[in-house]
Each structure stands twice: as structure tokens, then as C-alpha cells.
Design a protein around this nucleic acid. Structure first.
Length: 324
DNA sequence: AAAGGTCGCAACCGCCTACAA
DNA sequence: CTTGTAGGCGGTTGCGACCTT
């Protein structure tokens, strides 16, 4: 018995929805609800696939949706939950009233990923790039270290270049202040050289950097990374974004990660403002750990959490949409 | 002003899961 | 228990708007 397609592909319209189609779908759903998506386009007089109707409704037409900009608070929520849950957009979206998984996913892919990379944070692991390189270097036996650590640097090259570009701008700004350091001036003197070559060199040859060996991955720590973190241009704080929430998870115990995250202004106001979010995050994590016996396997078989995950005793009332 | 590049978002695709028959 | 199906989900693509050169 073959599977019946959800719609007849030949007779189905695709692409952008017109206002007339939106109106037909909305008024049909207002009258009859959303019980059988396969029948809805037929009954509503639409030449659309049922799945297409469902997506249009859930992602755009639903009356309870917010269509404006994602707020700073919402960004905090997304980043924090993503650090715990990974790409589970529907779960993350459930904590953001009026936002869909598609909204969250799009915002993450277009804005937040770049923002985190620009701050020197790997958007997948939520750890500083320097921390990852250190982990690689310390995990490997000595003969492997130079080759694989360099390979790792290759993986992060784009992010590193981004970081270095930002740092360069910062240093140039410092140049205009009386307190500009000798190192800064020396660095800016190379302005006329090919920027890409210089930056690539800087990655391979940490000593060329004007600051205190931040890329020396043989002895790298995220503490020295945090120095860089603090020195980023004001752009991130200007946009209201602080990455100070990762300490809410298992990393918030004085680990290198939390040290690097909780420097300067990143770990004060933002934490207070989001204590409720913290509870929410913990509860979700606890739920997931409980469900999965301490392990969460992704579709490709990789494990997100291990058995050492801690369970918190947080009332589920703290959740917007408690996961019970 | 035009061409090319980038960004942001809506929509689609294919896989997975729950559930009914 | 097996199979078929609808709905859900995350990844990816397409395209219009905006920006830069």
C-alpha cells in the first residue's frame, strides 16, 4: 500500500501567499478550526497543499503571533535556551509568547549566530573559541597537538578573522585617546598592508598580536580570553546584548567558561533581570535529563548531555509553558 | 544611476514520531 | 504487531528589500 501524497503536486500553487488566499484560509479556520489540514485547502477553496496551509497559519496568520522586532529580552531567552537545548526551536519558541519556531530559527541563523561569533563564542557549543582550542590541545597526545590544533584554528578561521577585525577597530579607536598604548600605535602602523594576509599571519603567529599572547593555544586559557572579551568595541553592548547567562547552567561553577562569560558588565544586571529565565532554563534541562536518563541523543547520534547533568529543584510554575 | 552583494524572512523539503486502523 | 497517515520539526532555499561600490 503506497503512501498517499498530502496533496496533488500538479494542481497545487506554491510560493508567496496572496492577501486573498490569506483571507480565505483565515476565515475558514475561524469557522471550522484546524482539525484536518489535508481537507482544509479543499474546503476553503485554496489550491494549496495542506501542509502549506498549516505552515502559513502557524507561522504567519495565527492571531496570537507577534510580528515586530525580537526584543533584547527575547534574544537573551533564545541564547540561554539554545545553550541548553541546542536547535530545538519549537521548545525554545514555546517560551516566547507570540513567536514561532520559524521566527526563532531565522533570528538565530541571521543575527544571533553572527553576534556570538563576533563575541568570540562558538554558537554551537556556547564556549569561547579559545576554550575549544585549549580543550583540543589538552586532549591530544603531544605529537598530535601541533597538527590538529592548527586544523582546529583552520575551522575557526572565519570567526577569528571577525574577532581580529573587531579588535583592530577597537585599537584604532583607542589610538585617538591620550592613553593609547605603544603596542596599539605599532599595530596601526601596518594599516597599508594587505589586511587579510596580516590577519591570517596573526592567527598563525600569535606573537604578532599587539596584546599579551591571547592566541597562544599551547597555554591558552579562557581567562586570558576574557581580557579580549572585555575589550570588544561597544557595539555589542550598544545593541543591548550581553552574553552573561551561560553561567546559569552547569558551567556556572567557576569553570573557565563562566569566568570568561562573567567578566565586566556581562554578569550583573543581566543575571538579575533574568532570574526567572534561569529557573525556566534549569527546569527544561532537568526535564530533558530526566526524560533521557541523563543523555540526549541527536538525530545523528551525538550526545548533548551526559550522566553528570545536575537536576535542579525548580517549580514548574516558573515556566511560561511548563514541560511536564 | 546601475550592478553586485548581503540580509531577513517566508516557504518548502524531507525526515521523524505518534497514533489510529 | 504492522502499516499508513497526519502533523511536527529542523534544515535549507528562494526572493524581495536594502546596502555598498
Amino acid at each position: 500500500m503506497g503512501r498517499i501524497p498530502c496533496c496533488e503536486k500538479d494542481n497545487v500553487k506554491r510560493g508567496q501567499w496572496t492577501p486573498k488566499e490569506d483571507q480565505k484560509l483565515s476565515s475558514y479556520i475561524a469557522q471550522h478550526g484546524t482539525r484536518n489540514w489535508r481537507l482544509i485547502p479543499k474546503h476553503a477553496g485554496l489550491q494549496r497543499c495542506g501542509k502549506s496551509c498549516r505552515l502559513r497559519w502557524t507561522n504567519y496568520l495565527r492571531p496570537d503571533l507577534k510580528h515586530g522586532r525580537v526584543t533584547e529580552t527575547e534574544e537573551h531567552t533564545i541564547v540561554t535556551l539554545h545553550s541548553v537545548l541546542g536547535n530545538r526551536w519549537s521548545v525554545i519558541a514555546a517560551q516566547l509568547p507570540g513567536r514561532t519556531d520559524n521566527d526563532v530559527k531565522n533570528h538565530w541563523n541571521t543575527k544571533l549566530k553572527k553576534k556570538l561569533s563576533g563575541m568570540g563564542i562558538d554558537p554551537v557549543t556556547h564556549k569561547p573559541f579559545s576554550h575549544l582550542i585549549t580543550e583540543i590541545a589538552t586532549t591530544l597526545s603531544p605529537p598530535q597537538v601541533p597538527h590538529l590544533a592548527e586544523a582546529a584554528l583552520g575551522c575557526f578561521k572565519d570567526e577569528m578573522l571577525h574577532l581580529l577585525t573587531k579588535r583592530r577597530i577597537d585599537l584604532q579607536l583607542q589610538q585617538y585617546s591620550p592613553a593609547a598604548s605603544v603596542n596599539t600605535i605599532t599595530y596601526v602602523k601596518h594599516e597599508d598592508k594587505d589586511v587579510t594576509i596580516e590577519k591570517t599571519k596573526a592567527i598563525k603567529e600569535p606573537d604578532m598580536l599587539p596584546i599579551n599572547k591571547p592566541w597562544d593555544f599551547t597555554g591558552a586559557t579562557s581567562t586570558n580570553f576574557s581580557g579580549n572579551f572585555n575589550s570588544f568595541p561597544a557595539s555589542d553592548s550598544d545593541s543591548g546584548f550581553h552574553y552573561g547567562l551561560t553561567s546559569l547552567g552547569t558551567e556556572g561553577n567557576g569553570s573557565p567558561l563562566s569566568q570568561s562569560m562573567c567578566t565586566g558588565n556581562t554578569c550583573t544586571d543581566a543575571q538579575q533581570e533574568t532570574s526567572k529565565l534561569a529557573a525556566c532554563t534549569r527546569n527544561l534541562r532537568a526535564k530533558m535529563v530526566k526524560d533521557l536518563g541523563g543523555r540526549k541523543e541527536t538525530r545523528d547520534g551525538s550526545i548533548i548531555f551526559n550522566s553528570e547533568c545536575v537536576l535542579w529543584d525548580i517549580p514548574s510554575d516558573d515556566l511560561i509553558n511548563p514541560v511536564v
